[in-house]
Amino acid sequence: MKRWLGKAEITLGNHSDRLNAINIFPVADGDTGTNLYLTVRAAAHALHDAAADSAAHDTAPQDTAAKNDVGAVLARAGQAAMEQARGNSGTLFAVFLCAAAEPLAGHPRLSAPLLAAALNRAQLRAWSALSDPVPGTMLSVMEAAARAAAAVDSAHDGDDSNHTLGLALDAAVEAALDAVVRTEDQLAALHAAHVVDAGGVGMLLILDCLRSAVLGEELQDQLLDGLHGYDVQDPHIHAGMPRDEGVEVMCTITLSPLDAATMRQRLDEMGDSVIMSQVGRAVDESGAYRWRVHVHVPDADPAVALIRSLGEPSDISVSELALPDAELHHVRARESALQIPDGHER
């Protein structure tokens, strides 16, 4: 799991410019690659820091058990990702990671049945985190991967051998690629721009990193060949799109189930791209949970006032959806400098 997230951090870092270049949905703000990279980096660093702490101190028996628990390891990474999630794509990946950890709890190794269960739980949680989930995004890629892994598991009657795990991972990545290709025709904005979904490509890369880490094989060099908008000579599509007004508001906050439902309803009325998901499974003495909240709104003040009326948020951030003119000029100026070869690294 540490190898997976480490590979994903490097790979998304290498691909962030190109992912940003084709990021036009749900808004053309050109930051999907950056947001995914920073969120995955938070997850990867949480495991690196935990390993360093363990090495620096005598490890208690319960800590040793946690190190050999795939679910516990991913839960730690998922909570760090959730606390530091960036944007739609980063938040959805953090939700994916936290949910995937749950069926793996208590298990010292991954298997095809566990992979199928983890991917299914993760895609269901990601779909449900959004108030208005849309096909043709990274959600569709998550769902396709989960269905493919489940089909392999079913065909092999729950066999937990490494061989069947490899088949399930191969099938998940292949299905994810097919789902990415289909995104172009699932969303009108992508079809008009003749590009695939940026978040979907990012999720495909993350899944191929999982396959690579588990099987001990290299990343698949030709995986992205032919994806529309992904050639090195292609322009930064988002820079030529109409600029989106409004802001993105994100925070972490402790809420009761009733207050969480109230917040979701009110945010749905104020804006769009509402994502709310629990951070961990811990509940305080009043029955409240920690939540990660994300929304796009025309004006930050009403959203921030609502959030503060229901609790005390931490890590609250407000960022413009539209790139400043100076940054748009910089994006266009560097288009010709992009150098991403056929493989996953540049």
Rank of each mutant, 00 (worst) to 15 (best):
L114A: 04
A52C: 03
T262F: 01
S314C: 13
Q84V: 11
C98M: 11
A282E: 13
G202Q: 02
D284S: 05
G33H: 06
D29E: 06
G6T: 04
C98K: 06
M138D: 07
H296V: 11
E327G: 00
P61G: 12
L321S: 08
L74Q: 07
R211S: 10
A116L: 00
A65H: 13
V283W: 03
H228I: 09
P135H: 08
L47C: 05
A101R: 03
N120Y: 11
R334T: 14
P242L: 13
S140T: 15
V279F: 05
V249Q: 02
L47M: 07
A122E: 10
V152A: 00
P257M: 09
S140G: 13
D268W: 03
L97D: 05
H330N: 07
P108F: 00
G199N: 08
W291A: 04
G202R: 04
G30W: 06
V195K: 00
A239H: 10
L205P: 04
S336R: 09
L119K: 04
G287R: 07
E312C: 03
D132P: 04
E83D: 13
W4L: 07
R86Q: 15
G87T: 14
H194D: 14
I10T: 11
A171L: 06
T64I: 13
L12C: 00
P302H: 12
A146K: 11
L19I: 09
H48Q: 12
N88D: 13
D17V: 07
S16D: 07
A171F: 03
K2N: 08
G311P: 13
L223Q: 05
V293I: 11
G202T: 08
G158R: 15
M270Q: 00
A189G: 02
A192H: 09
I275D: 01
A66R: 13
D244H: 14
W127K: 09
D17P: 01
L130W: 00
W4R: 08
E174H: 07
D160G: 10
M82Q: 07
L119F: 12
R332A: 10
N120W: 09
M276S: 03
A172I: 08
A303R: 09
R346W: 10
D234K: 05
V173T: 14
C251G: 02
T254P: 00
R266I: 02
A213K: 07
